[in-house]
Write a protein that binds this DNA or RNA. Structure first.
Lengths: 170, 170
DNA sequence: AGCTTACGTCAGTGTTGTTGACATTCCAAT
DNA sequence: ATTGGAATGTCAACAACACTGACGTAAGCT
C-alpha cells in the first residue's frame, strides 16, 4: 500500500483519517451514494419523458421562485443553450411560467405552475424520503459532519450559492 | 413553510435535523458537492479525450485488479454495451489489458498497464487532494458522520459492493 | 445435445452537455 | 440619438454516455 508520507511524525493527532485508503473510501462512498441519491427521482422521471436536468430546473425554480434565467444558469453550471432546451419543454408542457421582468424587461422570471409544483412535490418527496431515512439511521451528529464535509468539498462559487439558498429557506 | 408533521411531540429528542428544510439542504449539499467532487478529474480528462466513464472504469480496475467484466458491470451499474465502448478505447490505447480467464475461459480479467496506472494516479491524485482538504477542514468526527450518512443513502446492493471494496483495501 | 453464461458487437435512440453563429431587446454611456 | 454591451433566445452541429434490441461466439453445465 502506498502512502502520502504525511501520516507519521505529526505529534499526538494521528490524522489516520487522511490516509490514501481513507480518502479513496470517501471517494467511493460519494460515487455509490450519489447513485442512490438520484435513483428514486430518476425512476419517476423516466415514466414522464423527463430527465435529471428537468428535475434540477424544477427544484431550483421552486426553491427560488421568480429567479432569472441567468441566475439559474449560474446555479446549475450549464450553458444557456442546454438550460434553454429543458426550460422550453417545461414551459411548453405548462409546468413553468416565464414572465418578462418588470424593471429590466430583458430578464425572464421563472415560476412553477400548479402542475409544476405537483411534479416538484412528487420528485422531492421521493428524494427527501431517502435522505430522511439516511439521516435518521446515521443520527444528528453524523448529519452535521456530513454537511460540513460536503460544504468543504464544494467550489467556492458553489459554496456561496449554497449559502444563499440556505438563508433563503430559513 | 410546509412540514412533515413529525417535528412535534416526540419527547426530548427534537429531531430538528429531520425537518423538510434540513433535508432539502442536505439534497442541495449533495448536488453542489458532487460537482466539486468530479470537477478536477473532469478537467484532466477532457484534455485527454476521455470522459467520466473512463475514469470510473480505470478507478475500479485499479482498485480490484483482475476483476471480470461482469463484476465491473455490477459495480458501475451500466449496460455491457456502455461499458464495452469505454473498455474498447482503453484497451486500444494501451491503458487496460484484458486477459482470458484461466479456470473459466469465457471470463476476461482486467488489469491496468503501466500507462493505465499512470493515468489512474494522475486522476486520483487530483480527486484525493480535494477530498483531503475537505476532510482536514471538517475534522475526523465530521468525516465519520459523512461516511455514515453516505453509506445509509446507498441502495443495499451498492452498500454491499462498497463494503467489499473496503475490506479489500484494508 | 441442449441450455446457460460471459463477452463482444452492430445498429438505433435519447438525454444532456458542449461550441459557434446570429437575432432581438433593452439599458447605459457617449 | 447613436453606439456598445448585456441578457435572452434560437438554430445547427457535435460529443459523451446512457439505453434497448438483436445477433454471434465461445465456454461451461446438466
Amino acid at each position: 500500500m502506498r502512502d502520502t508520507g504525511m501520516g507519521a511524525g505529526l505529534g499526538g493527532e494521528s490524522l489516520l483519517f487522511l490516509t490514501d485508503e481513507q480518502l479513496r473510501q470517501g471517494i467511493e462512498a460519494m460515487f455509490f451514494a450519489y447513485r442512490g441519491f438520484t435513483a428514486d427521482p430518476d425512476r419517476i422521471l423516466t415514466d414522464l419523458e423527463y430527465g435529471r436536468a428537468h428535475h434540477r430546473a424544477v427544484h431550483f425554480i421552486n426553491r427560488a421562485p421568480g429567479t432569472t434565467v441567468n441566475n439559474l444558469l449560474n446555479i446549475l453550471g450549464v450553458t444557456k443553450q442546454s438550460l434553454n432546451r429543458v426550460l422550453r419543454t417545461l414551459i411548453a408542457d405548462g409546468l413553468v411560467e416565464s414572465r418578462i421582468g418588470h424593471s429590466d424587461k430583458r430578464e425572464r422570471h421563472l415560476y412553477l405552475t400548479d402542475e409544476g409544483r405537483a411534479l416538484e412535490q412528487k420528485l422531492s418527496d421521493a428524494q427527501r424520503a431517502r435522505m430522511r431515512t439516511a439521516f435518521r439511521e446515521a443520527g444528528p451528529d453524523a448529519v452535521g459532519g456530513f454537511r460540513r464535509v460536503l460544504e468543504a468539498m464544494m467550489d467556492p462559487e458553489m459554496r456561496r450559492a449554497y449559502a444563499r439558498l440556505k438563508e433563503q429557506g430559513a
